[in-house]
């Protein structure tokens, strides 16, 4: 474990906590894409199957369980909570997620480290995570309202993978033979998807004004 990866994991955890707090405190999920939350739940389920058969460390196990539980809690709030579910923008959150899931699954069948069920599902989760934020970014463009907490959530979610990029560079130079091409390429694509958002987020922060997205 290195400081970049720990910072990445903590940023990821913090992003989820911020979203949960926003939903719990304001009893509203306005501006939040349920599709992105469901895609992330799929990412965690398909990636953390090894919870059942391999123990890596207490930290690894605890974090996986936290990510799974928080992902399903957010989905429960947005689908079932009597007050919160009324604030969900169903008409605007219309991204066709099958156009993300099917290509990622086909790619995982074609490009993977090993042709086994768990390995293909793990690879699928790596590809899917790279595009899971798209429904959320599209929703932001449509609704224009980027409330502060949702903006912070997306910024931290993008930042965690950028910190992982630094972690991979660090490990490449410090651990002989450490290679993870699939994860590296996918993680780079994932970070690039956020670049446009980062630009407008930092601009709003510098001008100390509410974040607004172009027309």
């Amino acid at each position: 474990m290195n400081i970049f990866r720990l910072a990445g994991d903590m940023t990821h955890l913090l992003s989820i906590i911020v979203l949960l707090l926003k939903i719990q405190a304001t009893k509203s999920c306005a501006g939040v894409s349920l599709k992105t939350q469901e895609l992330y739940a799929v990412v965690f389920v398909t990636r953390y199957l090894d919870l059942f058969y391999s123990f890596i460390s207490l930290y690894n196990t605890v974090m996986k369980i936290i990510f799974l539980l928080t992902a399903f809690t957010i989905i429960w709030y947005m689908r079932k909570h009597k007050v919160v579910c009324q604030t969900y923008d169903k008409e605007q959150d219309t991204f066709r997620v099958l156009f993300l899931i099917v290509p990622c699954f086909v790619l995982a069948l074609l490009v993977n480290h090993e042709m086994s069920v768990t390995e293909v599902l793990w690879t699928f989760s790596i590809y899917l995570e790279a595009v899971a934020i798209l429904p959320q970014l599209v929703l932001l463009q449509r609704t224009k309202n980027v409330d502060n907490l949702t903006g912070n959530y997306i910024f931290m979610l993008g930042s965690y993978r950028a910190l992982y990029l630094v972690n991979w560079v660090y490990r490449y130079f410090t651990e002989l033979g450490y290679r993870q091409w699939i994860v590296w390429v996918s993680g780079t694509v994932q970070t690039c998807v956020y670049l446009d958002f980062f630009y407008y987020y930092v601009q709003a922060w510098r001008n100390n004004e509410r974040m607004k997205l172009p027309g």
Partner: peptide
């Protein structure tokens, strides 16, 4: 095949 040290990340 991924080695165990390649499987230690979240």
């Amino acid at each position: 095949k991924r080695s165990s040290k390649q499987k230690d990340e979240l």
